[in-house]
C-alpha cells in the first residue's frame, strides 16, 4: 500500500525536553505518590496507595463520560449523579434477591450475581441518560445557566424517584464473598476489593484510550471536543455522536455507582450528589474534555485524599479542594487542556 509507504518515511520530530514538558502532569502524580514515603513506613504507604488508586479509579469511571459530554457539546450536566445513584440502586435490586449467591464460597456464583447486576445497572443508566438528554438537555443547548438549573432539577427529581421506588432509608449491601477480606503480600495486607477496583478502572481507561486513539468514532469524538463545527463541515453529524457519548457516559456512571456502592457497602438516594463533588473536582483538574486528564486527576484526588486522611485527618476535609486550587493556579485550563476552538 502506498499509504504505508508514505507513513514509513514519515518522521516524528519532537525534542526530548518538549515531550517531557507534555508529561509534566504525570510526573507530578508520581512525585505526589512517592513523597509520602518519607513520612510513613513502606507498608502503610503501599496500603494507602492502593486505597487511593482504588478510589481514584472509581471516580474516573464515574467522571469519564461527563468530561467527554462537556468537551463535545459544551454541556454542563449537573444531573450526572442521577446515573450513579440509579446504577447503584438497580444493581442492588438485582443483587439482593441473589444474596445466597453473593455469599456462596464460589467465584462463579458470585460473578453470576454480580455481572447481571452490573449489566442491568449500565444498560438502565444508559437508557436513563438517553431520556435525560432528549427531554432535559436538548432544549437548552448553548445556554449554560439553563443547563445548570435544569440538570440540577433533574438530579433532584431522580433522587426523589429513588426514594419513591426504594424508600428513604439507606440499603446495606454486601460484597460478593470472593471480593471480601484481604490478602497478604510480604508483610503488607491489601484489601481485595480495592485491587479489583484498580484493575477494572485500568481496564476501562485502556478501552477508552484504545477507542479514542484507534477507531474512527474515537477520532471523531476527539475532533468534536476540539471543534465540533468543523466535524460537521466534514460531513459528520455531531449530535448523533453526542447522544452516543452521553449514553456511554451514563452507562459508565452506572458502573461507577455499582462499584462505589460495593466499596461503601451501602446505597443511599443522595450518593450520586455526594460523589459529584469529587467528580467535578476531577474533571476540572484534568482539563474539561480530556479522558487522560480525567484519569490523572482522579488518581491525584484519590491519592491525596488517602495520604492526607492518614497524615493530617483535619486537612483531609479540604485536601481535594486545596488540590484543585493548586492545580488551577499552576495550569488554569487543567492538567491536560484540550485545544478548543
Amino acid at each position: 500500500m502506498a499509504t504505508s509507504e508514505a507513513t514509513s518515511s514519515a518522521v516524528r520530530t519532537a525534542p526530548l525536553l518538549d515531550r517531557l514538558k507534555g508529561q509534566a502532569p504525570a510526573l507530578v502524580v508520581i512525585l505526589i505518590a512517592l513523597l509520602p514515603i518519607a513520612l510513613m513506613d513502606l507498608s502503610t504507604w503501599l496500603v494507602l496507595t492502593l486505597a487511593g488508586l482504588a478510589m481514584g479509579m472509581m471516580i474516573f469511571i464515574m467522571a469519564s463520560g461527563l468530561t467527554l459530554v462537556f468537551g463535545l457539546m459544551d454541556v454542563l450536566n449537573f444531573g450526572h449523579g442521577a446515573f450513579i445513584s440509579f446504577g447503584a440502586f438497580l444493581a442492588t435490586a438485582v443483587m439482593l434477591p441473589l444474596t445466597p449467591w453473593m455469599e456462596a464460597d464460589s467465584v462463579w456464583l458470585n460473578l453470576a450475581a454480580l455481572l447481571p447486576a452490573i449489566a442491568v445497572a449500565m444498560a438502565m443508566a444508559g437508557a436513563l441518560g438517553y431520556v435525560f438528554e432528549r427531554v432535559l438537555i436538548m432544549p437548552v443547548y448553548g445556554n449554560h445557566l439553563k443547563q445548570i438549573l435544569i440538570t440540577m432539577g433533574g438530579l433532584i427529581i431522580a433522587e426523589q424517584l429513588i426514594v419513591v421506588l426504594w424508600g428513604p432509608d439507606e440499603i446495606p449491601l454486601i460484597r460478593p464473598l470472593t471480593f471480601q477480606g484481604s490478602f497478604t503480600l510480604g508483610d503488607v495486607t491489601f484489601e481485595k476489593y480495592r485491587l479489583i477496583a484498580v484493575i477494572i478502572g485500568l481496564l476501562v481507561f485502556a478501552v477508552l484510550s484504545l477507542i479514542l486513539s484507534r477507531t474512527k468514532i474515537g477520532l471523531l469524538i476527539r475532533a468534536g471536543v476540539e471543534n465540533g463545527e468543523m466535524v460537521e463541515a466534514l460531513g459528520y453529524r455531531i449530535r448523533r455522536l453526542f447522544i452516543g457519548v452521553f449514553i456511554a457516559g451514563s452507562a459508565l456512571a452506572g458502573l461507577g455507582g455499582v462499584m462505589w456502592a460495593l466499596y461503601e457497602e451501602v446505597v443511599t438516594a443522595n450518593m450520586g450528589m455526594q460523589v459529584m463533588v469529587l467528580v467535578f473536582i476531577v474533571i476540572i483538574i484534568g482539563g474539561l474534555g480530556s479522558v487522560t486528564g480525567c484519569f490523572v486527576g482522579a488518581v491525584l484526588v484519590g491519592l491525596v485524599a488517602n495520604y492526607a486522611g492518614f497524615l493530617a485527618p483535619k486537612v483531609a476535609l479540604v485536601s481535594n479542594i486545596a488540590l484543585m486550587v493548586i492545580v488551577l493556579m499552576w495550569r488554569p485550563q487543567g492538567l491536560f487542556p484540550v485545544a478548543k476552538r
Binding site: L219, R222, A223, E226, N227, M230, A233
Partner: peptide
C-alpha cells in the same frame, strides 16, 4: 480549523469520509 490534538494522518483519516 485543523484538529490540533490529532496527528496529520488522523486529520486526513477523518476527512476521508
Amino acid at each position: 480549523s485543523i484538529f490540533s490534538d490529532l496527528t496529520v494522518k488522523e486529520n486526513m483519516v477523518l476527512a476521508a469520509r
